[in-house]
Design a binder for these strands. Structure first.
Length: 96
DNA sequence: AATTTGACGACCG
DNA sequence: TCGGTCGCCAAAT
């Protein structure tokens, strides 16, 4: 596998197809780390190498601090957006 | 070693 | 829908 959960998180994010999104909580639960904050921390450090904009919060809102950027990238992927929010009911991707 | 911080989540009013 | 609170855990200070 790998040396730590960091690579594991990144590998999952890379598997998210265009037009779909995953939540921090889903990833955290999938790999079995303490909580979604750890996923967020990993993304803040190594997220630049993966499609970070396909990881959103549980309420469908994009990542904090970079919403404009995330929304444009999501829109480019064809992700179902409802104004400034992702339609999780349709766009939610179940990793694994 | 102790405290605060953070790309979060669930719950409550 | 919005804001406040608590729980969570690793990293930063």
């Amino acid at each position: 596998m790998d040396e730590g959960y960091v690579e594991l998180v990144l590998s999952i994010v890379e598997q998210i197809p265009p037009g779909k999104v995953a939540t921090y909580g889903d990833i955290a639960e999938l790999i079995g780390i303490g909580g979604p904050r750890q996923v967020g921390r990993v993304m803040s450090v190594h997220g630049g190498a993966v499609p970070w904009w396909r990881v959103v919060r549980s309420n469908g809102r994009p990542v904090r601090g970079i919403e404009p950027r995330a929304l444009e990238l999501l829109r480019r992927d064809g992700t179902p957006l409802r104004h400034d929010r992702v339609d999780l009911g349709v766009a939610r991707y179940h990793p694994g």
